[in-house]
């Protein structure tokens, strides 16, 4: 595998993603974890770009970084006092969780390595047309119209439900 700029950037993104994810799961301070998660999300967005999914990358940045992450930070602020910022970790749990995760990782890696259909599929580097127009066609005027509507209803329901659950006073009827 020759060392090109593309490769360098790809590995950079991959490393950034994995390293920051590692920070997310290990760091004690929850605010640090949240910001580390932002880096991870940006890294994933970069990987999307490498997969020539430009719309998806944009959505990832807008929705995740602009929405979900802010939501998470709100949650951190509302639920944790200053002393609660530190995440308590128990040693036995850490060990068991690590073991299981490691086994899971090993399994996944062996599956990935041993699945014949997935071998030797190289990105040939051909430029593809921007996906936004086609995605719009597929969603609003194609086979994905119904799932789109369903998901929109789901999102609405989730937002109403979230507002209802997190409301401070639940008046008894």
């Amino acid at each position: 595998m020759e060392f090109t700029l593309t490769n360098f950037i790809f590995y950079g993104f991959a490393l950034m993603t994995i390293a920051s994810a590692l920070v997310v799961v290990t760091v004690r301070n929850i605010v640090h974890a949240a910001f580390s998660l932002m880096v991870t999300l940006f890294g994933v967005a970069g990987l999307y770009v490498f997969l020539q999914a430009d719309f998806l990358a944009a959505t990832q940045v807008i929705v995740y970084v602009g929405g979900i992450l802010v939501l998470i930070l709100f949650g951190v602020m509302m639920t944790s006092g200053r002393l609660e910022m530190r995440i308590h970790i128990e040693r036995g749990q850490l060990l068991l969780g690590g073991l299981i995760s490691l086994m899971l990782l090993m399994l996944l890696l062996t599956v990935i390595a041993n699945t014949p259909a997935w071998k030797n599929l190289t990105d040939d580097g051909t430029e593809l047309p921007p996906t936004t127009e086609r995605i719009g066609e597929l969603i609003l005027n194609g086979p994905f119209l119904l799932p789109f509507e369903v998901v929109s209803v789901l999102l609405l329901v989730a937002l109403i439900g979230a507002a209802l659950i997190s409301r401070k006073e639940v008046r008894d009827e």
Binding site: T17, I18, A21, L22, V24, V25, I30, A34, T40, V44, I72, G75, V76, T79, S80, E84, I87, H88, I89, E90, Q93, L94, L96, G97, G98, I100, S101, L102, L104, L105, L108, L109, I112
Partner: peptide, 18 residues
């Protein structure tokens, strides 16, 4: 896979809902 495993690891070990 690595991301997935790290996520699982976080879910299993962290003592904070967020």
């Amino acid at each position: 896979a690595i991301l997935f495993t790290l996520g699982i690891f976080a879910v299993l070990t962290r003592r904070n809902a967020i």
